[in-house]
């Protein structure tokens, strides 16, 4: 895989790739690395947040932590399948041609920005959360959503939220670029049609991201 070509000239990269036999190994490794990074970040963040809980609840919280890590890990693969599936379906409306395996592979390459974004997000998270002093709350306080939200927002500063939002927007826009060229050559579409196909899941994802940020603020 020529990463430089994928970043600087995705059109050429996918064009070359379309002439070869499709392989899922490299996209799988990209998504796998992304899932591992997401799991690490989930572990780090939840282990800090879980300090809010009283000591007698810490053992129960470890089960939730394992669930969150596994979810983050599987989430990457599910997103890959889901986005590839949605694009494949939408491209049918534009009379796109090509096997799903190729769509899956090309969309997988498009997760490279997420991998870079995750690396930056982990560093930013460590920068903000490494010195955070997390108070232990009582059960009554934890059951009060206002209190819990206030405490979490006091631990996670607004600057961190804004920084992550910027990184996520950048990643999504980059995804749009890569997936446009990816679906173009995977389904043999015109550039404009490919752009529309890629735009629909990206917009949905972007709306979800902005909603999450608004909720945090």
């Amino acid at each position: 895989m020529n990463i430089r070509e994928l970043i600087l000239n995705p059109d050429n990269f996918f064009k070359d790739l379309s002439s070869k036999e499709s392989s899922l190994t490299t996209p799988f490794l990209i998504v796998l690395a992304l899932s591992v990074l997401n799991s690490i970040y989930t572990y780090y963040e939840t282990s800090i947040i879980f300090n809010l809980f009283p000591p007698d609840m810490q053992s129960k919280m470890s089960i939730i932590m394992i669930f969150s890590i596994v979810s983050s890990f599987i989430g990457g693969f599910i997103s890959w399948l889901l986005i590839a599936g949605v694009m494949h379906l939408i491209s049918m409306a534009f009379k796109g041609e090509g096997p799903f395996k190729r769509t899956l592979g090309f969309i997988g390459y498009g997760f490279l920005p997420n991998l870079i974004g995750s690396l930056i997000t982990i560093l930013v998270g460590y920068y903000f959360l490494s010195n955070a002093q997390v108070p232990t709350l009582t059960m009554e306080q934890l059951q009060n959503p206002t209190v819990a939200e206030e405490v979490i927002s006091s631990i996670i500063p607004k600057t961190m939220v804004y920084t992550n939002l910027l990184i996520n927007i950048a990643v999504i826009l980059w995804n749009l670029g890569l997936w446009t060229y990816g679906i173009k050559y995977a389904r043999d579409l015109e550039l404009k049609k490919a752009f529309i196909v890629a735009l629909i899941p990206v917009v949905l994802f972007l709306i979800y991201q902005i909603y999450g940020v608004i909720k945090m603020l």
Partner: peptide, 25 residues
């Protein structure tokens, strides 16, 4: 505010985020 002490210099990650999005654009 557990992170108040960091408030003074936490614009560095934000600048990195802005540079990242500018680079992507």
């Amino acid at each position: 505010n557990p992170n108040q002490s960091q408030e003074n210099n936490d614009y560095i990650p934000l600048i990195i985020g802005i540079l990242f999005i500018v680079g992507v654009l």
